[in-house]
Design a protein around this nucleic acid. Structure first.
Lengths: 154, 154
DNA sequence: CTCAAACCAGTTGTGCACAATCAAATTGTG
DNA sequence: CACAATTTGATTGTGCACAACTGGTTTGAG
């Protein structure tokens, strides 16, 4: 498989980007199973990862950490608030800022998530040493492409 | 950056999967710019890649190639048909099968897409030799995780 | 031949992503 | 102080993804 399509620059099998796209969806599918009993989606789980490290933070910082804008985060956070995982409140010092704060229920969920990274890594079939190298390359792509990406063409 | 967070298994920065997820969105953003003047989205471009190699094929095979189901492909193909890039028709031999066929307009678009892979690869900042290795690892993840993923837990 | 099982595409409903736009709050400058 | 520019989050609209379901078609066991 993935035969060398030779000259064709538009062959699907030759495209690094399709591999990233397909792998991303496959990994999200893995998480879907592992997160099902916590009733979290993968993006919601990412929000929890950040909040488990910083119990309270502005929406803006959350967006910077996950590289998501308010159009994505606002409804996502609303659903998580309705589920009781977090609360949102306007900052007293700056009324423009909305602070996202973990509830006790949200904080308690951390324990049930502790083994997820290891289980997912097994699910990918990637040895730990390769994973490190792979992550480095992908971070580089996200930084490079993301930098001149969404905001770009200046 | 991406400091070694040490022990914390739930640190965002340590997660290979977030790197895949973020890189995927960053790359999609790159394509968004390059495909804008063709008025194609990235998934639509992927459909075109397949059709440029096989001018006519069943929806099922298209889904197998891109790992997308009919819930995604049906409305996507409908929009592309409305735009005149392709036509859909029931197979004569098997009325269950819908054949997707490139129109002349769709085939003609290929020329304008020829330089896109090279431009995207530059946009990722990944040298060509690393790209090959990266693609191999990602294919493995997609196969491994996708295999026991969407359909899985048998 | 019959009819139950499998197959294929489409539809519905939910949840991201992201561009574009908006309103409210804050900041900086004169 | 006045007020234009900036910041912040929300809202609207479009387009994926995917689970669950539907309806028409084909296949195959008996």
């Amino acid at each position: 498989m993935t035969a060398h399509q030779g000259e064709n620059p538009l062959s699907l099998d030759n495209q690094l980007c399709f591999a990233i796209y397909a792998a991303s969806r496959a990994v999200t599918g893995l998480y879907r199973e592992l997160l099902a009993d916590m009733e979290l989606t993968y993006p919601q789980y990412l929000v929890m990862l950040v909040l488990w490290e910083h119990a309270t933070m502005p929406v803006k910082d959350l967006g910077a950490a996950l590289r998501l804008d308010s159009g994505t985060l606002s409804p996502l956070l609303r659903r998580m608030e309705e589920r009781g995982l977090l609360r949102r409140s306007r900052s007293a010092e700056d009324e423009r800022v909305v602070l996202v704060a973990l509830t006790e229920e949200g904080a308690a969920l951390r324990e049930r998530a502790l083994d997820i990274p290891a289980r997912v890594l097994r699910g990918t079939g990637i040895p730990a040493d390769k994973a490190e190298e792979l992550r480095g390359l992908l971070d580089r792509i996200a930084e490079y492409a993301g930098g001149s990406g969404t905001y770009a063409a200046r």
